[in-house]
Design a protein around this nucleic acid. Structure first.
Lengths: 273, 273
DNA sequence: CCAGGACTTTGATCTCGATCAAATTTTTTC
DNA sequence: GAAAAAATTTGATCGAGATCAAAGTCCTGG
């Protein structure tokens, strides 16, 4: 269950770990600035503030399967995924579990970088991934100077907090069948209420995120064929939404719609750090 | 397991539910202002801001066992417990679980009141409890005017977020024996590293917080006698700290010291809302 | 296009923790 | 201070989900 052979990386600054022949701690591409600017976190700050923040930031490209953050390390940067995807996971006593998967364009480990505290979660790339690194010190200086940015940070952190609480509620109040069923419905909603869609990440990650083993997820998905879902590989086909809904009992206070709106770019929500 | 006969209370404003012959939506006592002022959240704001916020706030006294917040209701107030204690719990499909117990002096449901969103958790008094209600609208107006307060809110929310993440990590990575053992050690640290201390809340609440049944907690505590803890009612006696530590494998990134410093007044940490 | 590795599925078995039931202790109430 | 209610403990049993093992499938890199 635990991937071994971890390539250790003290801090993202350690450019030697990044890929490519060109030195990868590089400047941002002009086309990615607007995407970042559109994030809730950066949307309301002044243009000057935004530009200042971006000026002190830089991009890095990482190959697949690279550990980019090790839990316990000092949080020196806010991370923004602009390409690829990142798994946030927690480790303890030789065990590990997936806490979230972050997809473009969204930020992660905001909380740690704001508190100038050690990361609580580790992170690894799931594919070739490009990340913007915003120095935590600049971030902290900025929300003291730009009130609208401070408000955005407050709003974002509150949303992240609520997202983890939702996730904790689901873990504590639902059994695994119910968690799977409601996860499938939630993803359907994210896909615009689609009756058929493809799982956004590997099943092993979904299993770990939902607090179960891959074997158990596999069996549960099979069992759910009696309750209105059919799987075809990574494809989900909802054959009887009403039946599935009866089983999952989706709850606004656990499954959204807030949770969906909040989880901007995060498949397994709650990526504040 | 589920307390029935809930007295429903739409909002804390509904004074009719509060106790006492004197109308309980009353002004604050002078002696409680300094205690509130000392909270991290209010420590750094200007005196003027603090006074303005307190001027629009009011106190209410609740009897034991009263539901003061129902999850899903609009979050109109930040709550501050100044006397007694409050259980935060979550409900779904007829089940419920304890998310935190808040004790004086500390705030709860900060996140919900800031987002102007529905409460994700319910709250009930565990004893006779006095609560200060700070209107959420005033709160939101205030951090736009007082930068230091905004910074405090940011810092507080980040701490709350991290606190829930810690709790989620513990739930997902540890089995129940490990959760109990590390809980006991954490409480010992909160008691200044004491070898003997009294559990701060009832065992059924600890059980629910730790994601297990009271029966299982009882049995686990009994089993732990072989691992360096002895129980005498609600009294914990650590007979072999080393042995217990070996079992619990306490981790800075789950059990503190941050987690302890953060959980100011909250026995089962993570009381942002 | 083939080989190797990772992911997924299926089957068999086991175990941790839940559930049910009842006794006992503690706390509250009248 | 006795009766009642709540909390805790203990015992017996059950079952959801984990673990172990192996086969099958998908993906990837040479």
């Amino acid at each position: 269950m635990f991937s071994e052979g971890l390539i250790l990386l003290r801090a993202p600054l350690d450019v030697s770990q990044a890929e490519g022949s060109h030195l990868s701690g590089s400047t941002l591409r002009p086309e990615e600035l607007p995407e970042i600017r559109h994030l809730h976190l950066f949307r309301d700050m002044t243009q000057a503030s935004f530009e200042a923040l971006m000026a002190s930031s830089y991009a890095q490209n990482f190959p697949q399967g690279l550990d980019i953050i090790r839990q316990g390390d000092p949080a020196d940067f806010l991370h923004i995924v602009v390409e690829g995807s990142v798994e946030l996971f927690a480790q303890w006593s030789g065990r590990e579990c997936t806490m979230a998967v972050v997809q473009p364009v969204s930020t992660f480990i905001l909380a740690a970088s704001i508190r100038d505290a050690p990361y609580l979660m580790s992170a690894r790339t799931l594919e070739r991934t490009r990340i913007i690194l915003v120095p935590a010190a600049d971030l902290r200086a900025m929300f003291r100077r730009d009130t609208e940015f401070a408000v955005s940070v407050i709003t974002e952190l509150a949303a992240c907090y609520r997202s983890v609480v939702r996730s904790a509620k689901s873990l504590k109040l639902r059994n695994s069948r119910e968690r799977v069923a409601s996860y499938l419905l939630r993803q359907s909603m994210l896909a615009g209420g689609a009756t058929s869609y493809t799982l956004p990440v590997e099943k092993r990650l979904i299993a770990s995120y939902l607090g179960m083993t891959p074997e158990n997820l596999s069996r549960t998905l099979r069992m759910l064929e009696a309750d209105g879902v059919k799987m075809d590989g990574a494809r989900v086909i909802i054959t009887d939404r009403e039946k599935l809904t009866t089983l999952a009992q989706p709850d606004k206070l656990i499954d959204g719609p807030d949770a969906i709106a909040d989880a901007n770019g995060s498949d397994l929500p709650g990526a504040s750090g």
